[in-house]
Design a protein around this nucleic acid. Structure first.
Lengths: 175, 175
DNA sequence: GTCTATAATTTGATAGAC
DNA sequence: GTCTATCAAATTATAGAC
């Protein structure tokens, strides 16, 4: 709280005029982030595009939140398990939001598999988790002004995710 | 410290008979982990196999540490930046170890590109970071006894990483 | 090698003046 | 809306008995 107040240019006691607790600050940061994220996912999904296009767009949306929602993504990374373990039900919406997001991703992965755009021999849920992790953990090393911006990260990842690092006869490698 | 002592079945004061500070505990946990990890990477690299085989093995090694080195991986995830920021130089070896590990991975990626096993239009360093993140963050949700063991996670990831999620004419998708 | 007791510091939060 | 002053609890660490 003292560090937050210092960043804001006031003393820690003054923070309690704006928020009634540390949890309330976290709450506002996370709600804003999740509402924005889910809304943008919905737009991508409702675009009517094929699964591969939608999934690529969702990857781009994810990376694009790293800058505007850096604090939220960091808190999600570091304190997710802690916030969920709190005795009050204050952060129950986190699980609700995560479940909805997971459903969105998995639906697109399954739709792509059904349409023959994605290979059928991967587990949709596990694949979602790995995509999710890759995007959000980038907040730990990503710094604005570096060699690549979030859009560049997204394009690189989409390339590897969809087409793979390897070169060669795809079919013969699918055992 | 109280929680660690409780897990050990003693009181917190008694811990200081075995370690002179909290940092010393973290230090021992991380050193053990990094020595094991680097040694196993070296074995894989010195096997003389082609880059693709070595890289797949390095992925397997990474996932296989999630169970035996769960505490270390968790601390690396949560406290890496903090440990590096400490005024004393006690954890300088973390950066040294990370640099060495990064060199190992990037060398294999570049070797695979030179040999035509990996596509040349991906950034080796960025690709390494994404592989690294995907492996280690799994510690946050991976629980022994679940649907998949670490070896299963590794095989799934190797499949997606090398061959991609997509199906179709690879060349036409490389713009 | 562990316990009891306690020191020293950090941290979230409050009361009331201005 | 911010500051001063301070509280209460938590947390790392120490001293000395057993």
């Amino acid at each position: 709280m003292r560090e937050i107040a210092e960043e804001a240019g006031i003393l820690s006691g003054s923070l309690y005029h704006h928020f009634d607790s540390k949890e309330s600050i976290v709450d506002e940061v996370l709600r804003t982030f999740l509402e924005d994220l889910v809304a943008r996912y919905r737009v991508a999904i409702q675009s009517g595009s094929d699964a591969r296009t939608v999934l690529a767009e969702m990857v781009r949306i994810g990376f694009s939140t790293l800058e505007p929602h850096r604090a939220a993504v960091t808190v999600m990374q570091n304190d997710w398990n802690y916030l969920r373990s709190l005795p009050d039900n204050r952060f129950d919406y986190l699980v609700k939001a995560e479940d909805e997001v997971e459903r969105m991703w998995i639906e697109q992965i399954k739709r792509g598999q059904a349409a023959g755009q994605f290979r059928g021999d991967v587990d949709p849920k596990l694949t979602y988790r790995m995509i999710r992790d890759t995007i959000w953990v980038a907040v730990r090393w990503f710094r604005p002004g570096g060699r690549l911006n979030p859009a560049g990260l997204a394009e690189h990842y989409v390339k590897v995710l969809f087409d793979g690092l390897g070169i060669g006869d795809r079919v013969s490698q699918q055992v």
